[in-house]
């Protein structure tokens, strides 16, 4: 799993490359939570363009980060999810709380990053 993070204003953008399952969930969770210790971060965007696979362990990671971000009054968005991950989102009802975008620019615009 390759993870990269950058801060744009009050938005944390995290890019994931690889597969998000139970094996990689801990690493992703720790990485994001470390960066979220910065109290000036209000919103989180996870770029999943290069994420090939996600199962319900990934749902757990997203829901946990959603809780942290919503406590700060912010939003969680995801970018570029593939059809396999889309199926997981639909089944779990994740679209009700997490916004999905086709590209990062759109996500940043909507979250007030530009």
């Amino acid at each position: 799993m390759q993870i990269a993070g950058k801060k744009i204003n009050d938005i944390l953008v995290v890019s994931l490359e690889g597969e998000l399952d139970h094996h990689t969930a801990g690493e992703v969770r720790e990485y994001i939570d470390n960066l979220l210790e910065d109290p000036t971060i209000r919103n989180l965007i996870i770029d999943m363009k290069k994420l090939k696979f996600m199962d319900s362990s990934g749902l757990g990671v997203l829901l946990g980060r959603y809780k942290i971000i919503s406590r700060r009054g912010g939003e969680l968005g995801v970018v570029g999810i593939n059809t396999q991950i889309d199926r997981i989102f639909v089944v779990s009802g994740l679209y009700k709380i997490i916004k999905a975008y086709d590209d990062l620019k759109q996500a940043l615009n909507d979250t007030g990053g530009y």
């Binding site: 199962d55 757990g60 829901l63 997981i88 779990s92």
Partner: peptide, 15 residues
């Protein structure tokens, strides 16, 4: 406590 979503069987059932 392990941040499990509880959706494993639901995913298997649906897919």
């Amino acid at each position: 406590e392990l941040e499990r979503s509880g959706m494993g069987f639901t995913v298997m059932e649906t897919f």
